[in-house]
Amino acid sequence: MNTPLLSVRDLHVNFGTSEGDVQAVRGVSFDIDRGETLAIVGESGSGKSVTASAIMRLNFGADIRVSGSALFEGKDILSMGEEEVRKMRGSDVAMIFQDPLTALNPFYTVGNQISEAYTIHHPGTSKKELRALALDAIEKVGIPEPVKRIKQYPHEFSGGMRQRIVIAMALINQPKLLIADEPTTALDVTVQAQILELIGVMQEENGTAVILITHDLGVVAEVTERVLVMYAGRLVEKASVIDAFASPTHPYTRGLLNSVKSLDSDRHSRLEPIPGIPPSLIDLPTGCPFHSRCRYAASLNGRCSTEVPELKAVGNSWSACHLPVDLLAAPIKESL
């Protein structure tokens, strides 16, 4: 059991557009173990969702180039044949989408859709069995009156309830890995916590590993063990959740944490936004992608704008920054 469940190495994803190549993901590597929860954090366009759909091989179209490898239980997903990928999707690796309002087909009852997700991988299951399975799945995700609800259509459910159904569909084949792409972004704050808790419970019951993609640092702190921070298609920091929050190393991670308010922060302190905007993925800056917004870049005599920083160990974390290790490891309030 020493080999990780999923091992992504040097993943690159490029989209060809009329304006030029969009380099959405550039050399991302990470591992995830069985049953583990891993968060990928970053702002819009940082490549986190693209990474997820590359793992699912969901990238449509001819203008997309994916390179690198993603070994799932030793088999490279990126070099699988179509049929093999189809068999893997849903049964080994399943996905939850951001917007539960559009993730369900309006023309089928939810019971029908849940059992459909099962029959794709278990053809020839009897109707009676399917009904029992769907009822069971709906009950497990905490929807009351399953017998009545199973016959209803998606438009009769609230957003939170629909997300529960999507989760039920994703977990019906007991996948080993669940990719949740911003599962709570489209939901009310009160419902968010319930959905996260549900994912946690289901994960424990089935021993599923979860990759949680989000831009919400609160969500990360609540449910995950390890965090990957992405910026402009690159990993800038890898750390345990505790390290990432208590002693963030990369200037970008620090900026992210400074730009949210927490309950224990001083109520008179001002939020500190990160200045500037993320770089265009078509016309990327040389060197560190963050250098134009980084307040320390000037102190390194132009190294930041010429040389791409590699991930290096800083205490228990990994950080892609040219700053010396002792500076990166310094407590957040001091020196930096």
């Binding site: 969901l58 189809r86 068999k87 849903g90 951001q98 917007d99 993730a103 087909n105 309006p106 794709i120």
Partner: peptide
């Protein structure tokens, strides 16, 4: 095809 349920069906292994 850009709606999530088509993508979702693909993610469940639909041909």
């Amino acid at each position: 095809r850009e709606r999530d349920f088509v993508e979702a069906a693909r993610s469940f292994g639909a041909g």
